[in-house]
């Protein structure tokens, strides 16, 4: 059992949990992920590691309540336990040697982008961070990003906070001004990553994206997470989750992500109704 040591709502639908998992904390690196099950009959869901503390033996996860399992996860409190917590899985983000990087986070994807921005900052790189949210009340990790960014921009779809517009608008402005980057790292919804890549291709800037497809085991066993990268089939769980964004077939990934949409919606509603009834 893996005890939840802290729980904090970052916004109405995004929660941070600190989990007691000393063995995973010892090995985890930014970009890697864990797979968890809330209870004995639960499904396995992958979540990217949002932070870790090797000394305290803790791993932090940040998740958005999007379906039945994240809904159930959010019903737990500090002191409760997760049934299963496996990791660290996948290949760590490649950050060595990068001198100047634009880190782009969209929505809850910002939670995954943050540890990479922090690591780059700690390694002495210049970090320009751009994060995007639908509106002001959904903004997360602002202080954390500011602390590790040389330039920080918040975008909101409705203009209720920061600049109005999309992360691609902010990035394009920087590129137009003549900013150059060793790499752009973009983590967020598939559509966001697709358009960041479209933009950076025009400017010829290498772009790395973190893919989060449907997965079961996370060790290469099922192949459910497969995607096409550079015309070849890759497994996000063992070959990624980071990939060269200019090579990823986003349209295919977007279609594949909808495979169980109806089922998931039904399960989510059932979970909500169950808890409302209690």
């Amino acid at each position: 059992m893996y005890t939840i040591l802290q729980k904090e709502a970052l916004n109405p639908t995004v929660t941070r949990m600190v989990i007691d998992a000393p063995l995973i904390a010892r090995k985890a690196e930014p970009g890697q992920f864990v797979i968890l099950r809330v209870d004995e009959a639960g499904e396995r869901i992958p979540l990217t590691v949002a932070d870790f503390d090797r000394e305290k033996g803790t791993v932090t996860i940040i998740f958005q309540i999007v379906g039945a399992t994240t809904y159930k996860l959010n019903q737990l409190s500090a002191g409760d336990s997760l049934h299963d917590f496996v990791g660290p899985l996948g290949v760590a983000s490649h950050v060595e040697g990068l001198k100047k990087v634009a880190v782009i986070g969209g929505g809850v994807g910002s939670a995954i982008a943050y540890p990479i921005a922090k690591k780059l900052h700690d390694l002495g790189a210049t970090v320009h961070s751009i994060v995007g949210f639908r509106s002001k009340d959904l903004v997360i990790l602002e202080e954390e990003f500011r602390a590790c960014s040389d330039l920080f921009t918040v975008m909101t779809d409705d203009g209720s906070y920061g600049e109005k517009g999309l992360v691609t608008n902010a990035l394009e402005q920087l590129l137009q001004k003549g900013e150059t980057y060793d790499e752009v790292i973009a983590i967020g919804p598939l559509v966001m990553m697709k358009f960041v890549c479209k933009l950076t291709r025009e400017y010829g800037v290498k772009t790395v994206v973190s893919m989060n497809p449907i997965m079961i085991d996370g060790t290469g066993m099922c192949g459910g997470c497969r995607l096409t990268v550079g015309g070849k089939v890759k497994f996000a769980c063992v070959d990624g989750p980071d990939f060269d964004g200019h090579e990823v077939d986003f349209d295919e990934a977007i279609e594949r992500s909808t495979m169980y949409r109806d089922f998931e919606r039904h399960q989510y509603e059932a979970a909500c109704n169950l808890f409302k009834g209690v």
């Binding site: 085991d217 099922c222 459910g224 909808t258």
Partner: peptide, 13 residues
């Protein structure tokens, strides 16, 4: 990679 193609491993798992 179409939706509805499984490895036997995934389907059976």
């Amino acid at each position: 990679n179409l939706k509805g193609v499984y490895s036997a491993n995934e389907f059976l798992t």
